[in-house]
């Protein structure tokens, strides 16, 4: 157990070292993307929206949108890292092969990769959160993160990151080549991006609303938004449970499928 944790951390450190070597270019998208979204969607599009109601409260569109951007960032960071990032390391760079020749085992490598994916989710979504808070403070007072519960958003983003990274690793274990990642992105990530409760309340989906609750992003978004608004409901507990269960299953499945792929 101790050895597994040690191996996992060594793999995590490898990826962190590479990331922080080029941190300037790595951080730029996380800083500017939320800015663009807030201006385009929040200001440009949001001004057309009136009468939005979330959790029984009327609210301005930009206030509804802002936490959604944090959860989108958590999703994309983890999913990208453990699809394209992990695949490149596994297949093209043969980094996994090099590592398993040491006391670190394949399971540790995959666990370390997933942990790193979740860390990317944590890093990027925290930057997004900070950028939004600052921009909100200066430009969009409607955003108003007043509740202290926003401090719980990074840990939730990390947890969501574990979920998305584990799911991503499942695809990495089964795709024949790197182009095949188009499928999970097109069939899973894009629909979540659009229907995961980030840009509009899922209650707008009418009869299709229950389906939105199947999507992992919906639950990450609910938790992050409610924490940012200082709302709590029974739904939050269920969302947390959903994330924990899916993460556990996906994590073990990913490690298993990866062992199957790489053990020859």
């Amino acid at each position: 157990m101790i050895e597994m944790g040690r191996g996992m951390m060594a793999v995590w450190r490898r990826n962190a070292d590479v990331f922080f070597k080029t941190w300037k270019t790595n951080f730029l998208p996380s800083i500017f993307e939320p800015l663009l979204y807030l201006v385009a969607m929040g200001l440009g599009f949001g001004s057309l929206v009136s009468g939005l109601i979330y959790a029984g409260q009327p609210m301005e569109y930009i206030r509804f949108l802002a936490p959604g951007l944090v959860s989108i960032s958590a999703m994309y960071s983890g999913f990208f890292e453990c699809t394209y990032g992990s695949f490149v390391r596994m297949h093209y760079q043969k980094t996994f092969d090099a590592i398993v020749a040491t006391p670190v085992n394949l399971g540790d490598v995959i666990a370390g990769e997933i942990l790193w994916g979740a860390s990317k989710s944590l890093i990027n979504s925290t930057i997004v959160l900070i950028v939004i808070a600052i921009i909100g403070w200066i430009l969009f007072p409607a955003i108003r993160f007043t509740s202290l519960t926003i401090l719980l958003i990074p840990p939730i983003a990390f947890l969501a990151g574990l979920m998305f990274s584990s799911l991503a690793m499942i695809f990495t274990a089964i795709v024949p080549n790197i182009d095949s990642f188009n499928y999970p992105f097109f069939l899973l990530i894009t629909p979540m991006f659009l229907f995961g409760g980030t840009f509009f309340p899922i209650s707008q989906l009418g009869v299709a609303e229950p389906f939105a609750y199947l999507l992992p992003l919906t639950h990450a978004t609910i938790l992050i938004r409610d924490l940012s608004l200082g709302i709590s409901s029974i739904l939050n507990g269920l969302s947390l449970l959903y994330i924990i269960i899916l993460t556990t299953i996906a994590f073990y499945l990913a490690i298993r499928l990866m062992k199957k792929r790489l053990t020859r």
């Binding site: 450190r13 070597k21 006391p103």
Partner: peptide, 29 residues
């Protein structure tokens, strides 16, 4: 594995690191 040193047939050096870092990062494993 802790007591073996393996130079594999195919190059799997870590292209994200320099020569020295390849050794020091490997030592961490």
């Amino acid at each position: 594995k802790a007591r073996l040193g393996v130079a594999p047939q195919d190059d799997n050096l870590d292209p994200d690191f320099s020569v020295l870092q390849n050794l020091t990062s490997y030592a961490r494993y």
